[in-house]
Nucleic acid binder design. Structure first.
Lengths: 312, 312
DNA sequence: TGAAATAGTTGACTAAGTCAACAATATGCG
DNA sequence: CGCATATTGTTGACTTAGTCAACTATTTCA
C-alpha cells in the first residue's frame, strides 16, 4: 500500500511535526477550559461518545478513544454510581453491557457540552467569516488526510462555472505553468482574457465550462466555446498536480467531446503546445489528430504551438 | 477586538469540535509511539524545546508548553541527574537558570527525534505527493488561524505584482462584489480583462501595481496605468473585508498619487460607481473631483458610473 | 526604601493511567 | 460434541503525571 512514489521531504516531515507540537499544546489549553467542570478531559470524551450515537459496549469505547480497559471500567463504574449511566446486558453476548446515558447523564453532559461549544465559538469569533470557512475546510482536509491513511477517496465532481471561478483558474494556471515550465506572467494574462471573454459571451445553448472539484477545492477545468456553427473549440484544459493520475484530464476532454457531439458540431479543435506532453497524450488517445504545428515565442519561452482536430 | 461581524454558525462550531476530538485521539496514538522510548510525551516535548533554539529559562519553558512549575522543576532535576542538562546561572537575573542540553542530552534526544520523524514519515508515505502538500498547507492554515486568536496584527506590506496575482484579484473581487452588491459574473470578467491587459502592456517606466499583503495573503490592490503622456488612470482599487479600517484604501490611493506626481503626469483619473461609497469617500478625501456621472446597466444591476479627476 | 512580583524549589497530595490476573462467556476446529 | 483459544468486563497493586500551596532568593517599580 505504501509504494506511493517518492518519500516525503524532510521539510514536510518537519512541518507536520511542528503542527503536532502546536496542537498538543492547543489541546492542553482546551483541557484547562474544562477545569471548573466536574469532569476530566477523558471523562468528557467518554460522555460525548455516550451522548451521541447508539449504545456501545465498553470494549468499543476503549478502542475508539484509545483507553485502557481497566481504567475505563472504573471510570464507568463511577458514572454508574452517580446515576449517569445505564448498563444493559446485551442479548447477543452475555459478557457485554450496552452503555447509554440516563436522563441524569444527559443533564450532566449538557453544560459540559455547552461550555465546550462556547469555548470554540469564542475562538471562532476572533476570525472573519472567510477565515472561519477556511479553518473548517483546512481541518476537514487534515482529518481526511491523517485519518487512517489509505482512505484516499479520489472522488471528484464536475459542475458548471460560477462567480470566482475564472479568476481562480487564471491564478492557478499562472502559478502552475510558471512552476512547471517557467512561463512568465503573460500566460496568466492570456488565461484571464480567454476565461473572461468566455464569461462575457457565454451562450449556454452552445457552450459550456466544466469545473472539477474535490472537497470544495477546484482541481481541474475545461472550457468549450463555439467557433462557428460547425466548429467547437476546447480551451484551457488543466488539472491540478494533486489530482493527476485520476483520469481527470481524460474525463474533462470526454465531457467536451460528448457535449460537442450532442450539440451537432462537426469538428472539435484545440490549440496547445508540444511541451504539454501529458495533455497531448490525452488528446491523441481521445482521437484528436495533430493538424498544424508552428514555432512561436510566447510566455517568455520558445515554444511549438500545435493545433489538434477531432471529427465528431 | 471581537466585534467581528456575525457569530459563527453551529455547523462550524461542530466541525471544529469534531476536529479537536479527532486530533486528541491522534495525539494519543503518537504518544503510544513513544512508549518504548525512555521518555514520556511531556519529557519529549521538553527535550525538543531544549534541543532547538537557544538556552531558555524554566519559566519560559513552562509557559510555552503549559506545564506546572513544580512538575517541570522536578522533571528538569531528573534530566540534570542523568547528565542530560546543563543549568547555567543567568548573568542578568540571578534567580534564573539558563537551560541547555549537554552532549549526552543531545545523544539521548537523537533517537527520540529520529523515531518521531520516522513515525511521521510513515504516515506521509501513505499519501501521494499532492496530498502531502495539501496536508502541510492545511495544517499551516489551521495553525495560523487557531494560533492565539487576536494575532491579527494589522501590519500589511506593499509589493509589486507577480505571477498569480491578477487571477487572484479577479477571483476575490468577483466574489466580494457579488456578495456585497449582488453583481454578476461579468464583473469578475471585467476585472480579469483589465488586469490581464495591464500585465500584457505593462510599462514599468509609467505604470505600476501595488499589492497589499498581510501574512502572505493578499488583502488589497490597485493599478495605475498610463492613458496618455499627461493622464494616468487609477484602476481596480480594492480592499478585503478583513483588512478594512486599517486605512489601506487610502494608503493605496496615496501611493498612486505619489507615483503619478513623480512621473510628471498632470491628471489622475478614475472610473467607479456611486454604490461604492467607501471608495468614493477615499477619493474625495484625497482631493479628487467628481467630473461626470452617467447611469448604465452593468453586472446585472442598474448603476451610476462616476468619473473622478485629480489635478496633480 | 519597601511592597509586590517573579524564578525556582520542595512537601504533600490527587488524578490518570498501566499491568497482570481473574471469572464469565463466546468462537472455532477437529 | 468438547476442548483450546479469544474476548468482555472486573479488580488489586502499582507507577506516572500533574496540582497546589508554601517557601527562599531575587528583581522590579513606585
Amino acid at each position: 500500500m505504501s509504494h506511493k512514489s517518492k518519500p516525503p521531504t524532510d521539510e514536510q516531515i518537519e512541518k507536520v511535526r511542528s503542527f503536532n507540537r502546536f496542537y498538543t499544546r492547543h489541546i492542553g489549553l482546551l483541557n484547562e477550559g474544562l477545569l471548573e467542570s466536574a469532569f476530566s478531559l477523558t471523562e468528557a470524551r467518554v460522555l460525548y461518545e455516550l451522548a451521541h450515537g447508539n449504545p456501545v459496549t465498553a470494549a468499543d469505547l476503549g478502542r475508539d478513544l484509545g483507553l485502557d480497559a481497566g481504567y475505563l471500567s472504573r471510570l464507568l463504574k463511577r458514572f454508574d454510581a452517580k446515576g449517569l449511566l445505564r448498563r444493559t446486558p446485551s442479548q447477543d453476548d452475555r459478557r457485554q453491557l450496552l452503555l447509554s446515558l440516563t436522563e441524569q447523564g444527559f443533564a450532566a453532559f449538557g453544560p459540559l457540552n455547552q461550555a465546550s461549544a462556547t469555548q470554540v465559538a469564542a475562538m471562532l469569533s476572533e476570525l472573519s467569516p472567510g477565515e472561519r470557512e477556511r479553518l473548517v475546510q483546512s481541518m476537514a482536509a487534515v482529518e481526511r488526510l491523517v485519518g487512517d491513511g489509505p482512505n484516499s477517496d479520489p472522488a471528484y465532481s464536475l459542475r458548471p462555472h460560477r462567480i470566482g471561478d475564472i479568476g481562480w483558474i487564471a491564478h492557478r494556471q499562472g502559478l502552475l505553468y510558471a512552476q512547471e515550465y517557467g512561463w512568465d506572467e503573460t500566460f496568466e494574462a492570456l488565461v484571464a482574457e480567454i476565461a473572461a471573454s468566455f464569461v462575457k459571451n457565454f451562450d449556454p445553448q452552445w457552450e459550456r465550462c466544466w469545473i472539477a472539484e474535490r472537497e470544495g477545492e477546484i482541481v481541474g477545468s475545461v472550457f468549450l466555446v463555439r467557433s462557428s456553427g460547425e466548429v467547437a473549440k476546447l480551451r484551457l484544459l488543466y488539472v491540478e498536480l494533486s489530482a493527476r493520475g485520476l483520469g481527470l484530464g481524460r474525463r474533462l476532454v470526454d465531457e467536451c467531446i460528448g457535449f460537442a457531439r450532442e450539440k451537432g458540431y462537426r469538428t472539435l479543435t484545440l490549440w496547445t503546445n508540444d511541451v504539454l506532453v501529458a495533455a497531448c497524450g490525452i488528446y491523441r488517445a481521445a482521437g484528436f489528430r495533430l493538424v498544424k504545428e508552428e514555432a512561436h515565442r510566447s510566455f517568455g519561452k520558445d515554444l511549438v504551438g500545435q493545433t489538434w482536430d477531432l471529427d465528431l
